[in-house]
Design a protein around this nucleic acid. Structure first.
Lengths: 217, 217
DNA sequence: GCCGAACCGTAACGTACGGTACGCATCAGG
DNA sequence: CCTGATGCGTACCGTACGTTACGGTTCGGC
């Protein structure tokens, strides 16, 4: 497990102007990838390099601030756990699946994951940890209550929620993320995402729905 | 789809010495990541920088040559398609799964994927395409005949082999690769890999085995 | 033994970029 | 109006690294 606390709410301590600067940096990151320069960020944000350094310390500080800033934008939408039946559970799962696919196929997510992966080797910063916390682990934190509720309602049957989540994760994502990160053009229209979400959900229910004898896998 | 022909057999045109140089570059790539320098490669390989440039053109050329060299090392092991029963099919699938998990969790695979992902944004070279061809797509090419044989033997039931393969891919890999690439320490002992391979195979058979009414998903 | 090619080691060049310093404009508070 | 703080624009410095150049060495062919 990675270090905790990597998903602090940064929107408190950032002024309006600083957020604008980070937005500019984010756009530049999407366009240029990791080879964006401090001068380019300063020019794009119409601020001076000195300000960048005063606010964010150094280049890595700016990068982490940018990643955290983007992470703080997507907030958790809690799920109601009352009156759960198969239809609403299915809808919840499909919604999670399609949201997730939309996220990982977005330009900013691809760019952010690219730089985080690139930086993961040399332990200079924690970009990988931050992205992981606000991506894969945040999804798990949001989805697990739904799974637990499904189990308590007698709709799902599994031993370990973590294991069930990881299976769902695999059924939804499959090879999409790695292909996108490696530059493959995956056709992900709105319709395709919807279809994938339905398929993954049905497969998940086939594996972990109650009345199936497969939960021991 | 990416451009074809990215997996040419390079072992023909490379001299013994050049292969040694690329091996050195590969080791350095695993240690240093993308921030390895030409001087470091020259020193590690006990050759001159001039030779590096004569042989590989420039830094990107050296990198692509290194990636292709590593790719050319893992050759395809064909599968016998005669006398297929459920036991042998299961064994084949488990073997693929465990081999794949072993590959993506290896140091060199992680390092190669990291630099390929990092370079994928700026279209300077085709590292992403090469890695994809010799990773995800090579696996598909090797596995699909097995799936087809399983279908012809009446053991599997699916419409689209590509779709079935992608599901298997997702069930095996789940979140492992992205976590590893992002620097998460995933415990992948020999035993864990074996267990994951068995679980994924059973799940796949539950979804796509004959006598199940789930193939329309 | 001699020649040229290939190659090693290293020094040198050019440049891109991270980081810093400084001058000037704006503006809030007194 | 004065003053200090904040921040923009820009020039500047240091350095790391890709790339090139060059002298010295090994070695196969004649």
């Amino acid at each position: 497990m990675l270090q905790a606390g990597a998903d602090i709410d940064t929107s408190e301590t950032l002024t309006e102007r600083q957020q604008a600067v980070l937005d500019a940096a984010l756009r530049l990151l999407v366009e240029e990838g990791d080879n964006l320069t401090m001068t380019a960020v300063a020019r794009r944000a119409s601020c001076s390099k000195e300000t960048l350094y005063k606010w964010f310390g150094d280049r890595d500080g700016l990068l982490t601030a940018t990643v955290q800033w983007q992470a703080s934008k997507v907030r958790v939408t809690p799920v109601d756990r009352k009156g759960l039946d198969l239809a609403s559970l299915t809808a919840s799962l499909e919604r999670f699946a399609s949201d997730w696919l939309k996220v990982i196929s977005s330009d900013t997510s691809i760019a952010l994951n690219r730089v985080a992966v690139g930086h993961a080797g040399s332990g200079k910063d924690d970009l990988g940890a931050i992205v992981l916390q606000n991506g894969r682990f945040a999804l798990a934190r949001r989805l697990k209550p739904v799974l637990e509720a499904g189990r308590q309602a007698g709709l799902l049957d599994f031993e370990d929620a973590e294991m069930a989540f990881r299976t769902f994760f695999g059924l939804v994502g499959r090879d999409v993320q790695i292909r996108l990160l490696l530059g493959d053009r995956v056709e992900l229209t709105e319709a395709a995402i919807g279809g994938d979400a339905r398929r993954a959900t049905q497969q998940f229910l086939a594996l972990f729905g109650a009345n199936n004898r497969l939960q021991s896998l």
